[in-house]
């Protein structure tokens, strides 16, 4: 097989990833462009071209393209999912570091070997680094790191590897957040915009660290079902609920985006129900996470309708 034949075969295989209808309409044209774009390329640049085509094909096949409603929902979830995963990783890394560096830290009684500590912190790095890359506007690097972090968590979940004592629930949450962030159509998540970076940075600081502050302040002494307990358990949904409120109260609300934002908060339902394994706890967590989101959706819609009514009334027409 000559090099030309080999390349033709690769392109043919990549085109087979497209849904048949799309392939029939655009396959020939895409093959032509791909052949011209990859002429003279080799190694990593060639691999990137192939990966770009494969990603486009799979996005269309899974209906997660930027023109699909599901793609737009996931795009709405992506920045919040990335920030949530980074937020959780940041707190995990701080916990392990503090356990070693601060003798009075509650977990200092545990003996962490340097190898364990290094591994536990290394596991959080892809997520933190992905967020740093996103904040720096490096979209491609952020996606590669996210992919690596998600793949590792999926492997850890399937192979039952728990390096830093993470429960299956936490792993499941991280996998869900990672998948939401990775699956978003890249053209709908533009980290080159300052507003995007500001959103991701703010959500990273707001999603999990306040829970740590709350628990540290209260010394973990608050009773189950008390207000601080409820607040610490529903907290991850509060920043997302605020965003849902802002989106839905806008004059022309992007409902799919709001749905995506709400979706990004749902993985947190499973994280905090580790301590009590009961139907009551599962229901309680679901209510605690979903209530702020539903409340924000209703309030946002009410604000929008009220504003529209006022504007269409005598005062608005005047």
């Amino acid at each position: 097989m000559t090099l030309h034949q080999f390349r033709y075969r690769i392109t043919d295989l990549l085109l087979r990833l497209y849904p048949s209808r799309y392939r029939a309409a655009h396959g020939e044209e895409i093959a032509e462009v791909h052949a011209e774009a990859t002429a003279g390329l080799s190694g990593l640049p060639l691999l990137r071209e192939h990966a770009s085509l494969a990603a486009h094909a799979l996005r269309l096949r899974t209906r997660l393209g930027s023109t699909d409603p599901a793609g737009r929902i996931v795009a709405g979830a992506a920045p919040f999912a990335l920030a949530g995963a980074a937020s959780y990783s940041l707190v995990t890394a701080l916990y392990f570091t503090a356990s070693v560096l601060v003798p009075s830290y509650p977990a200092a009684h545990q003996v962490f070997s340097p190898a364990f500590l290094a591994l536990a912190c290394a596991e959080t790095l892809p997520w933190i680094a992905a967020t740093v890359c996103a904040l720096a506007g490096r979209r491609a690097a952020a996606r590669v790191l996210l992919l690596a972090g998600t793949a590792w968590k999926i492997a850890a979940l399937l192979l039952d590897i728990q390096i830093n004592g993470e429960s299956h629930n936490s792993l499941l949450c991280m996998v869900a957040l990672g998948v939401l962030a990775v699956a978003a159509p890249p053209d709908l998540v533009d980290v080159s915009q300052r507003s995007s970076r500001l959103l991701i940075g703010t959500m990273t600081l707001l999603t999990v660290p306040p829970i740590l502050v709350l628990n540290t302040t209260l010394g973990g002494a608050h009773a189950v079902d008390s207000l601080p307990w409820a607040l610490s358990h529903c907290w991850p949904a509060l920043p997302a609920a605020a965003a849902v409120l802002v989106v839905l109260s806008a004059p022309r609300p992007d409902r799919l985006r709001a749905l995506g934002i709400a979706l990004s908060a749902l993985p947190w339902v499973v994280v905090l129900m580790d301590s009590i394994f009961s139907f009551y706890a599962a229901t309680g967590e679901t209510v605690l996470i979903c209530a702020p989101l539903v409340g924000a959706a209703l309030l946002g819609t009410a604000i929008r309708l009220t504003r529209a009514r006022l504007l269409s009334g005598p005062l608005g027409r005047a």
């Binding site: 655009h26 895409i30 462009v33 791909h34 774009a37 990137r48 071209e49 990966a51 770009s52 085509l53 494969a54 990603a55 486009h56 094909a57 996005r59 393209g65 930027s66 023109t67 159509p185 890249p186 053209d187």
Partner: peptide
């Protein structure tokens, strides 16, 4: 623009 990115933009 890579081919996948180009056609994502063109589709939209």
């Amino acid at each position: 623009l890579r081919t996948g990115t180009l056609y994502t933009a063109l589709d939209r």
